[in-house]
């Protein structure tokens, strides 16, 4: 895999698409036949490089694209009714983000910020909708990726709610979680709206 993809360029000229596609397929436990279709999806995307603390998109914006996170970590945050930033979660590559607004047409529900250097592949709204609505291997692979990713999203959100209601006894000693949150805090504290 090349180390320095070019912003805005076609993804195929910079990165090992098959390896990236296989990473997404395995992460979402999809059929082996989907690797080639996912690679074709990635090939049609544009590369974007994000610096630490760079915002990919903001809460309440209109959704103009969906993103495949190829490298790095993205912090997800929302504002409370007083406008105070509230950390929600961290996404690590390989991951999909920004797809919700394109699925149901609603505004962005959260602000996504790079927690370190990131590489994302951007698929614009027109192409995304065209593929999601279509038959064939690429449309099916994209739908399966989305359904799998959204299943995990839903499961994680439900788990977090239930953890708050009935916290497991060992949670109080979860130093790993505390350490991770401190790390994310350091990055997002520098984030300015």
């Amino acid at each position: 895999m090349a180390s320095a993809p070019t912003p805005g360029s076609n993804l195929e000229s910079n990165l090992d698409l098959d390896a990236l596609a296989e990473g997404f397929r395995r992460a979402h436990e999809l059929p082996a036949k989907d690797t080639a279709a996912i690679a074709a999806l990635l090939a049609s995307c544009a590369v974007r490089l994000l610096e630490t603390r760079q915002v990919l998109f903001r809460e309440r914006e209109e959704g103009t694209g969906a993103y495949f996170l190829l490298r790095g970590r993205i912090g997800v945050a929302r504002r409370d009714p007083r406008g105070v930033l509230l950390y929600v979660s961290t996404l690590e590559a390989p991951a999909l983000l920004g797809h919700m607004s394109l699925v149901d047409g609603s505004p962005r529900s959260a602000t996504c910020t790079a927690l370190g250097p990131c590489v994302v592949a951007e698929m614009d709204r027109t192409r995304f909708r065209g593929l999601v609505d279509s038959g064939g291997p690429r449309g099916s692979a994209l739908r399966r990726l989305l359904i799998s990713a959204m299943s995990v999203q839903l499961k994680n959100a439900n788990s977090r709610i239930l953890t708050i209601i009935d916290p497991p006894p060992e949670a109080a000693d979860d130093e790993t979680t505390e350490h991770g949150i401190e790390e994310v805090t350091r990055v997002l504290e520098g984030w300015k709206p």
Partner: peptide, 22 residues
């Protein structure tokens, strides 16, 4: 599959709204 995507999007938004409140 399209209907499933729309249904899941609604469930996620509902659940995330609850989580945000929590």
């Amino acid at each position: 599959e399209l209907h499933l995507l729309e249904t899941m999007a609604r469930r996620i938004r509902d659940t995330n709204a609850i989580l945000h409140r929590v």
